[in-house]
Amino acid sequence: MSTALLQKNTVRLSLVLLVIVGAVAVFAPWLGLPDPEEVNLAEKLAPSGPGHLLGTDHLGRDVLARLVFGARTSIGSVFAILLLIALFSTLAGSVAGFVGGAVDSVIMRICDIFLTFPTLILAMFFVGILGTGLTNVILAIFLTHWAWYARIVRGIALSLKSREYILAAKVAGTRGFSLVARHILPAMAPQVLVLATLDIGHMMLHVAGLSFLGLGVQPPMPEWGVMIGDARQFIWTEPQLMLYPGLAIFIVVMAFNLLGDGLRDALDRSGMLEERVR
C-alpha cells in the first residue's frame, strides 16, 4: 500500500517538475534573460553574481540563459522525434497488423533489419552520412527507433483485430477511416503513449550524447549536451560549468522515467509493455 502511494507521489512530483521545465522552455524568450548566444569575452568565466545568476561560460555567455534556451532544444528535439515515430510507426505497424499476409512480412523484415544494428552506432553512421547538425540527429534517432515501435504497434493491432467490439463495429458497417479513427486509434493510443513516455528519457540521452560528441547541435546554439562538451576542458578550474547542464539532463530524464513508470503501472494491465533493455 505504501509503495502504491509513493508511486503516486513520484508521478505527481515528476509531472509538476516537467510542467515547470516545459513552461520555462516555452516562455524562455519572455523571461528577461540575456541573449544565450551573445559572446562577451570581457566577462568570460565570471562567477555567479547579480548580473549572471549562474555565472558565464568560456565565451562570456550567460549560463542560466543557455540552460533555459537549451531546454527548448533538448526537449523540442525529442518531441520532434516522437511525433515522427508516432506518425510513421503507428502507420507501418497497424498496416502490418491489420492487412497481414505479404505486406506484414515485408514490413516486419524491414523492421528486423533495422533492429539488427546497435542503435547508437547506426545513429552515428546516419549522422556521418547525412552530416552533423540537429535536424540530422533527429532523423538519425528516428530512423534507429521507429522499427521497435512499429513492432509493438503491430502486436497491439493483432490483438485488436479479433476483439469482439471491432468485429461488431465491422458488422455494423463501420469501415475504413471511421473504423480506424473511432475504434482502433483510441484503443492503441494509451499503450503507445506509455511506451513513448518510457522512451523519452532514453532518446534525450542519445540526442545529448551525440551533441556532446560534437555530432549533433552545432555551436553557438545552446543545448545541454553541447554545454557539457564545452565545459569539459574547464573541468580542472570551473567544474560548475559541467555540473549545471548535466544536472538538468539528469533531472528531466529522471522525471520522464518516473512518469512513464507510473503510467505503465496504471494503464498496462495487458503486460504488453514489459520492461526491456535497449
Partner: peptide, 22 residues
C-alpha cells in the same frame, strides 16, 4: 536503478574524473 537509467553516461564520466582525478 532510477538514478542509473537517468544518468547521462558522458556526465557520469566527467563527474568521476572530477572526483577521483581532480
Amino acid at each position: 536503478s532510477f538514478v542509473g537509467v537517468s544518468m547521462p553516461n558522458f556526465w557520469l564520466g566527467l563527474l568521476l574524473v572530477y572526483l577521483f582525478s581532480v
